[in-house]
Amino acid sequence: MNDLEELAVLDPARHNEPTDAQWNRSRAFVERTMASAPASRPRWLAAGAVTVAAAALGVAGAVVVPALFPGATQQAIASWTAVPTARTGDQVLDQAKTCGKSDVEGSSTQVRPSDVILAEQRGDATMIIMRKTNGHIVECLGVGDAGFASMGLTDGTPLPPPPAGKLTLETRSSYGDGDDMFSNIIGLADPGVTSIELRLNDGGTIQASVKDGWWGAWWPGPEGGEGTDEFTVTAHTATGKTTYLPSEMP
């Protein structure tokens, strides 16, 4: 018997077997999880001139979206800032109307400022998460009030909320080609989360936006669509912080 085999006598769980009740609870949790959470994640899809260079991760059944207008991507990337400016529904109403008109997840018949859940400005680009008339939630990204890209996030079915102080990841992807490639990440945030930052492995730091249960960010570069963990996500609360690798985020 070697030293590692001898150590096994100290294992506090070596005689533990799950009880029938534990099996039942866990099986029921798995069934609830599969029933309530989509088996796939949304992603950007190009329907125009812009090429999808790196697909979103772990997705199927993606939503068709209009492509970002040629030239808008360059303008968005050229003016990008690591720290966003929060926008209200009133301030981005024109962009929200453009977003609402697109047929991604169904067109809105009317768009009100209160439909906007989260809006941020980075340079010339505006990112919006908003609820459409049919209750579906979409993300839109664009420059000015034209040239929006859009992606469906939910079909209106409530998603399982994250635990206190925690985040979920709904989608991450990269989009575009070469110098025009950008990354996108969206998820749910518990109300206790006060701020979120992304740290790229190359040292860059990006402040995400968080509001009304959602968080998101976009940035120039391919990291969002790569299978490896090219960045971390840190959620801050009043009492501490939680750091995630993207691949391990629920």
Partner: peptide, 18 residues
């Protein structure tokens, strides 16, 4: 322990293609 395990399976389901 069970809460931790549930969180792990929730993560795994949402990442099951990976």
């Amino acid at each position: 322990a069970e809460d931790i395990v549930s969180t792990v399976y929730l993560t795994a389901w949402r990442r099951h293609t990976e």
